[in-house]
Nucleic acid binder design. Structure first.
Length: 424
RNA sequence: GGAGGGAUGGCCGAGUGGACGAAGGCGGUUGUCUUGAAAACAACUGUGGGUUAACUCCCACCGGGGGUUCGAAUCCCUCUCCCUCCGCCA
């Protein structure tokens, strides 16, 4: 959510931001009109309320019954007006909020123009693309052959886009989770374990609603949503709080499963474990002061990159163009990991500086030392890599001619002595 | 699942329908005193919104929503959460 003052003072900036994302800026004018209307109504109704307050106080002190009753009667018409205006105001307010809720964040000036994936900019590529003296296989062949990924079982118990990991593959995923969490803890993040089901307010605060309602699983009996990312509860934990300046920046990391309907991607990435309705992820999250978020963003990108570097996975860093940057974000980088078997770059991480877009929705503020006014702080989020795609890279890049998979050195401490995955 | 009790400012805690945006305490800030600190004393100290060039003034907020009333922290309804006891089960 953007600051309403921005619409009063510099609406053109908002319009320009929307155009940069290839969106129609018309809602900006709606917001401005509603804001004007809202303030007119506010002034009118507040004046009447002020009158009611003073008269009510007078009534309380009056002894003369006749005069007293006359005052009370007079208040009847005032109250009727107040009721009518309050209703109107509520209507305007709701309309205003609902439009404001779907206006995206303003892209950072460093975000490249463009609306499509092709307009994203590859800023760097790190690591050697592995060479093989045999034909490397995709994981959907390697896994079943080794007996460690079972697609049929996933379909059997749930349906398409579900799978079962077995033995060393299940353990590999667990090792990756532990490795990533420990890495981020070392980088200064505080580990959190959060609920995986959240209420609607929490999803709204994180900016996933109303836009992505289609992509979320919901328990209609309890009105709870399954989280699509740990970013949602990590935004929610400080809702409506005023944080101490000294406690900033706050750096959190959390493991969580993520649940997504993927309706928009029907028919895409159907093979393998690339895009499931349920996947695991280790997330990084930061709360910073506004002036610190740019530097924090660089740190978070580097922290995510470190995951690939330590695992020896070749990756490239992509600066997303305006049209491809998520609506809550100011600026986002994707990390794409190389998968030797599928022969493609897989998006394994997205790191975003959200500015005050989420904190405004979630009402998370801080107070500067000796300052009277509270300020909205900035939030940043980034995947410390999604697990399935990291698994794919590890499996496919480390495969050997006989179909076995070498476990990277850094993961061995969690592998219970397993150094290579061989057919079971 | 059954029976009770509760939710008030950063924290603790009072609050008979008009004095209450809210006593008192703690904490915090500033000042006096002190070489400095502590102690003591004094003043200030919630959030959001509107209005104004500004001083100002006004409105709303006592867990959320609704209602009664000229007037609600206070009465009524409802929801959520917390606590205690009993039962049941991981």
């Amino acid at each position: 959510m953007l600051d309403i003052k921005l619409f009063r003072e510099d609406a053109e900036r908002v319009r320009a931001g929307m155009r940069k994302r290839d969106m129609d800026p018309a809602p900006v004018d709606e917001v401005i009109a509603l804001d004007v209307k809202r303030r007119e109504l506010l002034q009118e109704v507040e004046e009447l309320k002020a009158e009611r307050n003073t008269v009510s106080k007078e009534i309380g002190k009056m002894k003369d019954q006749a005069k007293r009753q006359a005052k009370i009667d007079a208040m009847g018409t005032v109250n009727a007006k107040i009721g009518k205006l309050d209703d109107e105001l509520k209507e305007v307010d709701e309309k205003l909020r609902s439009i404001l809720a779907v206006i995206p964040n303003i892209p950072d000036e460093n975000v490249p123009k463009g609306f499509k994936e092709e307009d994203n900019v590859v800023t760097k590529q790190v690591g050697e693309i592995p060479e093989f003296d045999f034909e490397p296989k995709p994981h959907w062949e390697l896994g079943p052959a080794l007996g460690v990924i079972d697609f049929e079982q996933g379909v059997k118990v749930t349906g398409s886009r579900f799978y079962v990991l077995s033995g060393p593959a299940a353990r590999l995923q667990r090792a990756l989770i532990a490795f990533m969490l420990d890495l981020h803890i070392g980088q200064g993040y505080l580990e959190k374990y959060t609920p995986f089901m959240v209420k609607e307010d929490t999803v709204f605060a994180a900016g996933q609603l109303p836009k992505f309602a289609d992509n979320l699983y919901k328990d209609h009996e309890e009105d709870l949503y399954m989280i699509p990312t740990a970013e949602v509860p990590l935004t929610g934990i400080h809702m409506d709080e005023i944080l101490d300046e000294e406690s900033l920046p706050r750096q959190y990391t959390a493991y969580s499963p993520c649940f997504r309907r993927e309706k928009m991607s029907a028919g895409r990435d159907v093979r393998g474990i690339k895009r499931g309705h349920q996947f695991d992820k280790v997330e990084m999250y930061m709360y910073t002061k506004p002036d610190d978020s740019d530097a924090a963003f660089e740190k978070m990108v580097a922290d995510a990159e470190a995951t690939c570097i330590e695992l020896g996975i070749p990756y490239r860093l992509i600066l997303k163009c305006a049209g491809d940057t998520s609506e809550a974000a100011r600026i986002s980088y994707d990390i794409e990991v190389w998968a030797a078997g599928c022969q493609e770059w897989l998006e394994a991480s997205s790191i975003s500086n959200v500015g005050d877009y989420q904190s405004r929705r979630a009402n998370i503020r801080y107070r500067g030392q000796g300052e009277k006014k509270t300020k909205f702080l900035h939030t940043l989020n980034g995947s410390g890599l999604g697990l399935p795609r990291t698994m794919i890279a590890v499996m496919e890049n480390n495969q050997q001619a006989d179909g076995s998979i070498l476990i990277p050195e850094v993961l061995r401490p969690w592998m219970g002595g397993i150094e290579v995955i061989v057919p079971s």
